[in-house]
Design a protein around this nucleic acid. Structure first.
Length: 577
RNA sequence: GCGCUUGUAGCUCAACUGGAUAGAGCGCCUGACUUCGGAUCAGGAGGUUCUGGGUUCGACUCCUAGCAGGCGCACCA
């Protein structure tokens, strides 16, 4: 039930009628024509720009055209109370009050599907997100992308698309070797009292490795930890298992669960890298060559070497990219290409990658490879989540992995909680750096938009408690024989924008619109609530502890939207706070 | 040096794929609790949307040239 879409369809019908009669010239596409909510200062409900879009081709001024069109539009729709033309050529429509009564009837009868776009074709998405290296716990830096990915998945699912959530496990390469060594030294530290080599820059110093080591020792009594060479392979597996266990625990505490974990090592073992490179070679996207040092960089340390390269420059990248290291091992990029081939083979309509800002430079090359493999430019969408600037004691807090001086997801959940973390991290567009003020978020105050929205729901729940009704169950009303006041219509107008919010969040992969929307809706509700202070007629419950149907159903509609929005964001809506 | 990205009120940010007189919160000023929950509300002050050009009926949004911040720039994933 998208009233803007419905209205737009009616307008387009009118336009087609007129053009058939020869009274109007239409361009090839009607895409530029929109129906929107007019700014609040206008006393009208819906507005369209048709006249301005069509004025030129019809050689009329927008105002003139708007005047003739508005007459035709009004004739077609009995629910229009008033139609007006406003400079520079907008047509503004005000509906009769009965329109809004019909509207709320419709959305409460189909409350489960309200907001869903029923017109578009449903797709099958694969979304890859987090994919942090399996070498330690998740920290704040991973958090934003994790939540972004999860909520994008939720929005798409809400909109009835198919979604597979995937985590790519980078369990291959040098860092895994170093990681395994680090665990090994911790084991020696525990079992043989040998000090951990703190001066070795390649090793991972974090304390959590002690836990890993202890677990591995306890569960593998049969292993001989004296000789690294002998057990290194087994130890690698065990160490990665430990890390993944921890990561999954962190994700769970954020309310995130992936459908698949795909192992890089397995892809390499199954020769998928060779296969994809053969494929690229056949199609002339691979050659042996040298990469030049970037301009402006010190090329003193630059060693030119001949390597297997992927021609990403064919697709607009600034240099070709190495597939093979000098020791013959595949680069990270090579196995990632194989991974993306693997994704493509699974026949998704669309691939989404969520990346951190520090990996943004990587997008060009991976999208180049997907283009080469699929012959399609828009198969893959990469979404970057910008940095989170932590602020503690009013000062920026710098994390340092080496010093072990960083905030983990565990810290965050313990201090801030899942709900606030999710809501705040999502509240801003992912393109913008986010200030995460620790002290502010912890404080349960009005500064925190999460509580503002939750409070709205709790207030409605409180009304339902007073009248001894269950907020969660459906409400049946026999007769919709009432009309809403302007205050109430304003809320209904906001509710009518919910499908638009879902559409935009889902199409543009910008879920931050949802918290913003929920805040606005909550704000209208709180205003409405406070009207009851001065005017007892505006209270929901009268002296006899009764509520009228119009108010009952309005509260239900508001709470429904708040609830589905908060479900998508992945935070709770308590009935008492 | 190159690429990506951001620049909107004192601060943190919105602005519905180009719409109308650019909106919120915080902070500042003034007010509202014998009351369905004050974690709330009403009102006030606060703007050359970084700058210069361009596209058009119309630009915070698109193009272009700059300026400023962030991120990245070979066998580390």
């Amino acid at each position: 039930m998208n009233i803007f879409e419905q209205f737009l369809d009616k307008i387009k019908e009118t336009l087609l009628d007129l053009s058939k009669k020869g009274d109007l010239i239409l361009p090839d596409t009607l895409n530029g024509i929109t129906a929107e909510m007019p700014p609040s200062k206008f006393d009208s409900d819906i507005s369209t720009n048709v006249a301005m879009v069509l004025s030129k081709i019809n050689k009329k001024t927008p105002i003139d055209l708007a005047n003739t069109l508005s007459e035709k539009i009004k004739k077609k729709d009995k629910l229009i109370e008033e139609i007006s033309v406003v400079k520079p050529g907008f047509i503004n429509i005000k509906f009769k009050k009965i329109f809004w009564t019909n509207f709320i009837k419709e959305i409460t009868q189909k409350s489960k599907s309200f907001g869903i776009n029923t017109k578009e074709n449903k797709k099958n998405f694969l979304i890859e997100f987090v994919s942090a290296n399996p070498t330690g716990p998740l920290h704040v830096g991973h958090c934003r992308g994790a939540i972004l990915g999860d909520v994008i998945a939720n929005v798409l699912l809400f909109n009835k698309h198919k979604v597979t959530k995937e985590y790519y496990v980078n369990d291959y390469g040098n860092q895994i070797i170093n990681f395994t060594k680090s665990v090994y030294f911790r084991i020696r530290e525990i079992s043989f009292k040998e000090p951990f080599p703190n001066d070795n820059e390649d090793l991972y110093p974090g304390d959590y490795l002690i836990d890993f080591a202890n677990n591995i020792i306890n569960y593998n009594k049969d292993l001989d930890f004296k000789n690294f060479e002998k057990i290194s392979e087994k130890l690698t597996v065990l160490a990665i298992e430990e890390a993944l266990k921890l990561i999954k625990k962190n994700l769970m505490s954020l309310g995130i669960n992936h459908d698949n974990f795909i192992s890089e090592k397995k892809l390499v073992k199954n020769q998928e890298v060779e296969k994809v490179i053969n494929f690229l070679q056949k199609n002339n996207f691979v050659y042996k060559g040298k990469i030049k040092a970037p301009a402006g960089e010190d090329d003193d340390n630059w060693v030119e070497r001949e390597q297997l390269l992927f021609k990403s420059t064919d697709f607009g990248d600034d240099k070709d990219r190495a597939l093979q290291k000098s020791d013959g091992a595949w680069t990270y990029f090579a196995s990632d290409v194989a991974y993306h081939k693997n994704k493509l083979d699974r026949k998704f309509d669309k691939l989404i990658n969520i990346l951190g800002a520090d990996h943004a430079g990587y997008i060009k090359r991976i999208s180049s490879s997907v283009e080469a493999l699929s012959n399609s430019k828009d198969k893959l969408v990469c979404k970057v989540s910008q940095l989170v600037k932590l602020i503690k004691d009013k000062k920026p807090f710098k994390m340092s992995k080496r010093k072990g001086d960083y905030i983990t997801v565990d810290d965050l959940i313990n201090e801030v909680g899942k709900d606030a973390t999710r809501f705040i991290m999502l509240n801003r567009s992912s393109d913008v750096e986010l200030d995460f003020d620790f002290d502010n978020v912890i404080e349960k105050s009005k500064d925190n938009p999460l509580y503002y929205v939750q409070y709205c729901y709790a207030r409605i729940a409180s009304v339902f408690r007073h009248i001894e009704k269950d907020l969660k169950s459906e409400i049946k009303i026999d007769k919709y024989d009432f009309e809403y006041s302007q205050d109430e219509i304003n809320i209904l107008k906001k509710i009518s924008e919910w499908p638009k919010c879902i559409d935009a969040s889902s199409n543009k992969l910008e879920p931050h619109r949802i918290p913003t929307y929920l805040y606005e809706l909550a704000s209208l509700f709180h205003s409405y609530w406070n009207l009851g202070k001065d005017n007892p007629d505006k209270r929901f419950i009268n002296d006899q502890k009764k509520i009228t149907n119009d108010k009952l159903i309005l509260l239900k509609a508001i709470s429904n939207v708040i609830k589905s929005g908060m479900d998508i964001v992945g935070v709770s809506v308590p009935e008492k706070m």
